[in-house]
Write a protein that binds this DNA or RNA. Structure first.
Lengths: 217, 217
DNA sequence: ATCAGATTGGGCTTGACAGCCCAGAACGAG
DNA sequence: CTCGTTCTGGGCTGTCAAGCCCAATCTGAT
């Protein structure tokens, strides 16, 4: 049996099928975020999503396929959030401050950690072949920060000597590390401090320290 | 049978017993670091440490007790490493650079992550009651950086306006986050960049930028 | 030397979970 | 309306790991 066209299409989903599949992914994402991949089993997911065992097998033959779908879903969520208009592509310091404030004020930050980072840490050493999906997501995430910083340079807001990729790595690392530390300490302070310090660092590259409404230290 | 003294001592270990227990913990730590907690089972540990099933049960009745011992062992290791003479309590920028260089050059950094951080992320959401042990370890770790930065201030090497706790959080978060990103990307660059940027930031507080052998940017 | 307690060996049981199957219901194109 | 396809329900089974037990051996203090 050879595929006639370029679209094998293992499952042609109807609208109802798509709805069920989406319901499974969303509930799986929530359960996994709250309890971790390993502590989330089929039965809990069945009850939460209101589906039966065979539906899971129908839409997600293996746990790996489900986890991949959850990763894709969470990645899309977090990337969409960061591309929200309010952050204007992170082309100014105030947007970064607003972004940091959001997560510092996000209750679940120090309870469950980052929706993507926690997931990544938990399964990166397992057999699950989810590496490429994760790498791609984090790469795009970093790209959002890097592009923003590059734009700050082009707009003359920060010095041309700043290294956008390095700074993007600092932001993402401070965020992920801060989330982990906050989770462990059950206190948001580590995240708050790390993000504040990272932003302060970027501020040292600002061409006019006071132009952004915040006085230099 | 009532204990005569105040020492219930659930198990008085002989030197042989202590050796076996230590062998188990060390091999468990290595296996867990390489493969994760969940992917490490009794059989692998039995073969690696050359012990039998009942020994595991004898020294570590539950997996939780074993994981706790591994956490304590790894925490002691990482804290001892950071207290090594060569870092002189992190009371100068050069020590931080040496520290960063060590991990950037450490092969397993972007393969397995941080010996403590990876473990923490993997099990923080599980039932295992290991929270206090982890919190204490990270608290001491942060304390090493904070104390170093405070000493830099007392020695007049950096401005008194720097916030030692905030900067300590930045270092630890950049390290943990950088480790995670490096693992995901299979590239050391994120860790290298994050640590470099964090050190650059501390450098902006230096009272004499060139006194430490490195020119300001 | 003796003996109580510590240590060791290997196998076994119980429980949990992922993956699978079959039959029936709903859907939707013609 | 009709029929092939997709969707759904609930139960079943194979696998695997954690925890446990009994019996044998070793240790070290007296």
């Amino acid at each position: 049996m050879v595929t006639t066209t370029a679209a094998p299409a293992p499952h042609e989903l109807t609208s109802k099928g798509r709805a069920t599949r989406a319901r499974i992914v969303e509930h799986a994402a929530e359960l996994i975020y709250a309890k971790g991949v390993h502590a989330t089993n089929n039965e809990q997911l069945r009850r939460a999503a209101g589906v039966s065992g065979s539906q899971l097998n129908h839409y997600f033959p293996t746990k790996e396929s489900l986890v991949l779908a959850v990763i894709a879903w969470q990645a899309e969520r977090v990337l969409t959030f960061h591309r929200d208009e309010r952050f204007t592509g992170f082309d100014n310091l105030e947007a970064l401050r607003e972004w940091a404030d959001f997560y510092v004020g996000y209750e679940r930050a120090y309870q469950e950690g980052c929706t993507l980072g926690s997931l990544a840490s938990e399964i990166i050493k397992t057999d699950l072949d989810v590496h490429d999906e994760l790498a791609s997501a984090f790469d795009q995430w970093r790209g959002i920060f890097r592009d923003g910083i590059e734009r700050m340079q082009r707009l003359g807001r920060i010095s041309a000597e700043a290294d956008p990729t390095q700074l993007a790595h600092l932001f993402l690392a401070a965020f992920q590390g801060g989330m982990l530390l906050a989770q462990v300490a059950r206190d948001i302070a580590p995240l708050k401090d790390a993000l504040q310090a990272a932003i302060d660092h970027l501020q040292t590259f600002a061409t006019s320290p006071d132009a952004d409404g915040v006085q230099a230290r």
